[in-house]
Amino acid sequence: MNKKVPLYGLLVAVGSAIYVLENFVPFPVPVPGARWGFSNMVIVYALPTTPLSWLLALAIGKAVIGGLLSGRFLSPTFMMGAAGSITASFSMFLTFKIFKRVGLVFHSVIGALINNLIQVIIGAQIISSWAILSYLPYMEMLAIFSGVVNAVMAGILLKRVKKGVGLR
C-alpha cells in the first residue's frame, strides 16, 4: 500500500503533464472546451491493476493538477475534463470487470467514447444550445482514435515495465 502512493503520484504527474501539453494540440471540432483526452492514457495504464477508488482518485488528481497548471481550475473547460475523465474511468472499470475476453483497446475506446459524450453534453450546457449535439458523431470518431492511441501507448508501457516498477 505505501509503495503505491508514490507510484500513483507519478501517474497523476504524468497525466497532468499530458493534460497541459494537450492544450497546445488543436482540436478539430468546434465544441467549446473539448479536448483530445490523451491524459486518460494514465488511467488506461493503471486500469488492469487498480481498484475503482484509486482509479477515480487518479482521474480527479490529474484533472485538478492539470487544471491548476493550465490556469483553468474550476473553469467550464476544467469541469468538462474532470466530468469526462471521471465517468470514463468509471465505465472503463466496469467494462474491465464485466468483459474478460477483450483487450485494452476495448476498455480504452469505451472510456474515450463516454468521455467525449460527456464533453458534448456539458459543452451544450455551456453555450446553452443543443445545436452542438450535431458534432457528436465527429467527436466520437475522434474518441475512437484517441482511445486506440491511449490503449496502445499504455499497453506497450505495461508490457515494458512488467518486470520492473509496475503497479503490482
Binding site: P76, M79, M80, A82, A83, I86, T87, I118, I121, I122, Q125, I126, I127, S128
Partner: peptide, 12 residues
C-alpha cells in the same frame, strides 16, 4: 458527476 454538471449549468 451530477454535482459537476449542476455547477457547470449554473455557471454558464
Amino acid at each position: 458527476v451530477a454535482v459537476v454538471i449542476f455547477v457547470v449549468i449554473s455557471r454558464r
